[in-house]
Simulated scan of single mutants.
Amino acid sequence: MKQTTIAKKVEGVGIGLHKGEPIKITLEPLEADLGIVFYRKDAGVSIKAEPGNVINTQMATVVGNKTGIYISTIEHLFSAINSYGIDNIRIVLDANEIPVMDGSAISFCMMLDEAGIKTLDSDKKAMIIKREVEVKEGDKFVRISPSKNPKFDYTIKFDHPIIGKQNYVFEFSKDGFIKEISRARTFGFLKDVQMLRANNLALGGSLENAVVIDDSRILNPEGLRFENEFVRHKILDAIGDLALIGMPILGDYTAFAGSHDLNHKLTLAILSDEKNYEIVTLNQELAKEYSKVFA
């Protein structure tokens, strides 16, 4: 099984969630073994997408460098890139965040569909999880465990009548991602949005790019896209956060009340001990199993 990139350059424009300004995003093909690379056109700086370059996980996953240049809210785009099995891609931006689009990953899926997938000459690598790794904070946890057929088993619990406790198990595949996960939007509480805006954050947030909830109801006139859209979006985020590992992960992900921060700490915990994983070239047998994911 060979590495992939996109077949041609594609461009899009969307609003930045925090600054509320238009942002141009361009996805470009990249050669083998280069991974996912950001280029801040306005600053003339490239940043490799990898766990060591994550600088903030408070409200989104943010990567940056020592000079203070950063890119925020990468997880929705990365979720699509990961689910399409793309190993190498260059993301060109003229601002410090990925545009929020409609708050889900479907716009990025459409961009990748337009770009097409190109197979490269170099062999594809994958990370096989060899033993369970877990990160806990109180009763919250995220965990990865050995599996040949990756799945995401996520549970959320909110003290809110609209959300409550939700669980969803997603068997990872490209087709499944598009149908079950990609359209699930980010969500927030009205009181939190008001507080963020008072601090000049979430200026681009609206009912067009998020599910917004007050004390008792959903404010979006169209309602939810899925009955359990909230937990599906958490899976979307997790797929994007784990993509920072830089290669497909053969392992089961389980979470209760997870977060960007716990996901980041999980990637660091995996990489902290080589006994946790094995990096392999996808030989004929492994490729046969894994290729089903991207059929």
Rank of each mutant, 00 (worst) to 15 (best):
I163G: 04
I25F: 06
D237Q: 06
S147R: 09
S291E: 13
K288F: 11
D252T: 15
G103V: 02
G44F: 09
G251E: 07
R225Q: 12
V37H: 02
L242T: 10
L190I: 13
P99W: 05
K41F: 03
E11Y: 13
L268W: 02
S107R: 08
T186G: 05
I6W: 07
N65K: 01
E132R: 13
K165A: 12
E274V: 11
N276R: 12
F172G: 04
G35V: 09
A269Q: 14
I69C: 02
A80H: 04
N88L: 08
D241V: 11
P146S: 10
I74M: 11
I213Q: 03
L268E: 13
A198Y: 09
K275D: 14
F108W: 00
L207Q: 12
K148I: 07
L271E: 11
A80G: 06
R232F: 11
S291F: 01
L236A: 11
I71C: 07
L203Q: 15
F177V: 08
G116S: 10
L196E: 07
Y39E: 13
K118M: 08
E31C: 02
N228E: 15
K8C: 11
Q166V: 02
G12L: 01
E132N: 04
S182P: 10
A126S: 11
N88R: 10
N209I: 04
K191P: 00
G103R: 02
R131K: 15
S173C: 10
L244I: 09
I69E: 12
I156Q: 03
A60I: 00
D33Y: 13
D94C: 10
I74G: 03
N220E: 03
I129M: 09
P150L: 06
G188F: 05
T155M: 04
A7Q: 14
S72V: 00
I25G: 03
I71K: 00
D123M: 05
L236S: 12
S173E: 09
T4Q: 05
E137G: 01
E208D: 15
F226L: 13
K48R: 11
K174F: 08
I144M: 12
I15W: 06
S46G: 01
D175K: 15
L244Q: 02
I245P: 04
K24M: 06
V212N: 06
M247A: 12
